[in-house]
């Protein structure tokens, strides 16, 4: 078998072959492999395999087991007015694009949206975000490169009492850098000065192509940052997102949104069914092979 064969067919061929019968060691190995390639942690993949063996292996059982273990759907906490959302994560995962997509979504709903450019670190981060939102009926508040991101947020909150939702784009920071993650909690405290309820959401963006790395990022960001949900991006790749199972197991952080492209509409609410279907190889919705 070639290096990457069997990637497309994913679960189906394997699982259909073994319908109902006890798994041979080779089939166990194959099932485990598929789960690992779908970005499940080794530990989680082994636990799932045990469950599947116990309950009888056929496609329906596997689907059921995965569904029962998947993070449940939870809606965005956008009912209080105004709501403040922080978008955080490591470098290049799709934070700024996600902010633009959310701005687009809420603007279409007729909400009064304020987009806050709090990445004052990366070159042209401000231009990127303002270009993305400049045709939308939203308010953009940004600042100079190198300026204090806390002041930008403060100004945005102070000057926009009419807003229904504030979407705060933050600079990318690697999860192994404690100092940078701590800096984020300072920014979040600025929100708290206005209301104890702020922020309603702190969304950690995970890049689907980074797979199980996302789990390590969540484990690290959660120390000191009150993460309320995940955004899975770049799911238009061949990534499957299995790491969200481990994150749910250990941190009980739900997935809120799934992104599958660079266009403003390439975003949708998370659905356990769709993620499980994508893992099993029957594609519904935005996740595709």
């Amino acid at each position: 078998m070639g290096l990457l064969d069997g990637f497309k067919a994913f679960f189906h061929q394997t699982v259909l072959k073994m319908q109902g019968k006890a798994l041979t060691p080779e089939q166990e190995e194959e099932l485990l492999s598929k789960l690992i390639m779908a970005d499940f942690s080794l530990k989680k993949a082994q636990a799932l395999l045990e469950q599947i063996k116990e309950k009888g292996n056929n496609v329906d059982v596997i689907r059921e087991v995965l569904l029962s273990e998947a993070p449940p759907f939870e809606p965005l906490r956008d009912t209080s007015v105004p709501s403040v959302f922080f978008i955080i994560g490591v470098n290049g995962v799709g934070k700024t694009t996600t902010v633009a997509k959310l701005a687009h979504m809420y603007a279409k709903q007729g909400k009064n949206v304020v987009v806050v450019g709090a990445d004052t670190f990366r070159a042209a981060a401000q231009d990127q975000l303002s270009t993305l939102v400049n045709r939308m009926p939203v308010t953009y508040v940004g600042g100079e490169r190198g300026s204090d991101s806390g002041s930008i947020l403060y100004k945005a909150l102070l000057e926009n009492p009419q807003a229904s939702v504030f979407l705060v784009d933050t600079a990318g920071r690697i999860h192994t850098s404690r100092a940078l993650i701590d800096e984020l909690s300072k920014l979040i405290k600025v929100g708290k000065k206005f209301s104890e309820e702020f922020p309603q959401e702190v969304l950690l963006v995970l890049d689907g192509t980074q797979g199980i790395q996302g789990y390590r990022q969540a484990m690290s960001f959660v120390q000191g940052t009150p993460i309320t949900g995940l955004v899975l991006t770049k799911m238009d790749s061949t990534a499957k997102g299995g790491m969200i199972f481990s994150i749910w197991d250990e941190l009980k952080i739900p997935v809120k949104l799934v992104c599958f492209g660079q266009q403003l509409d390439d975003i949708d609410f998370y659905s356990p069914q769709r993620v499980v279907d994508a893992i099993l190889g029957n594609n519904g919705g935005g996740n595709n092979d």
Partner: peptide, 12 residues
């Protein structure tokens, strides 16, 4: 390439 890539690295 992003050093943080997961299983996708080989496909990429």
């Amino acid at each position: 390439v992003d050093a943080m890539l997961g299983q996708e690295a080989a496909n990429i």
